[in-house]
Design a protein around this nucleic acid. Structure first.
Lengths: 155, 155
DNA sequence: TCAATAAAAATTGTGCACAATTTAATTTCG
DNA sequence: CGAAATTAAATTGTGCACAATTTTTATTGA
């Protein structure tokens, strides 16, 4: 049996490539985010809050979950850590006491300034053309869409 | 500031696409692997052992780590679980007592038969052409190579 | 020789992910 | 109205990842 024919061969698995590449990218982020004292998932949460807060929207935990594809089991403890650090406040809304909304503090907004240089720094020293990365991003979005069965072109 | 220009926009981040796609793929695997009572990382370990055991090689924990880019902090407890389930044996070698080698049991080899249908089943119901997936795999390998600074075309 | 160094795996501790369940609030509908 | 169903978040428990340290064994070199 030829290795390149074998569906169980590690090297032939897109999924392993995805798994390994994801961890390699996250590892590349780690020292940059350490300067902000954030983990990668925490950084993603902050990205959403910076983006939605900018237009004056109040982000709910469920909104975050929809954007990041994470549930409350992951988000609740993560958000508590960010709250303890003083980056955001969590508050139930009076119209519906089940809902928790998230509001950035001044410290949370201040951190955005520091974070602006992260994407630039990340690409620095990586020998990959931006166009190629954008093509990859679109391919990955297509995979995500196909797997989720969603119309995912705008969110 | 235009959203599509914003480097801090979630939608523009290749890295988030990678993160989300990876989790979506793993989620797609989960029910298939549940039939084998394996997690995805456990499945990857078994793939390596099936592949290397086939040629009669004794796989070391360090070999696994190199292939999967995982350290002993991750592998040791995972391998202990697989050993407890009777899928493999861990044994230190006499030439160098620091080294732990892994040998599949009969049950470990038997599981390979069940696993053969997994790649097929995974693609079933996913509206993605195989050629496109292979192109994606190669792109991801290029990213991995660029990030690790390795010659990664053969392993 | 034997102390210093290096190497392999294990251990410890933190923080995700995610399934499953629980709690509390809201909505639906008979 | 008021019980049943639904929803949002929190909780509980398991299994990765990974940094940092420790333990054990092997190798090096003065």
């Amino acid at each position: 049996m030829n290795k390149s024919d074998d569906a169980l061969s590690l090297d032939n698995q897109v999924c392993f490539a995805l798994y390994a590449a994801n961890r390699a990218v996250t590892a590349r982020y780690r020292p940059l985010l350490a300067d902000l004292d954030l983990t990668y998932p925490q950084y993603l949460v902050m990205l959403v809050l910076w983006e939605e807060g900018r237009v004056g929207a109040l982000t709910r935990v469920s909104d975050l979950g929809r954007r990041l594809r994470l549930d409350s089991g992951t988000l609740t403890p993560l958000l508590k850590r960010l709250e303890e650090r003083g980056l955001l406040n969590r508050q139930r809304i009076s119209q519906d006491e089940r809902v928790v909304t998230l509001a950035l503090t001044d410290a949370g907004w201040a951190l955005q300034k520091q974070a602006r240089s992260v994407p630039q720094k990340l690409l620095c020293g990586v020998a990959l053309q931006p166009e190629r990365l954008q093509a990859l991003r679109q391919e990955l979005r297509a995979v995500l869409t196909a797997l989720e069965g969603e119309a995912g072109s705008s969110d």
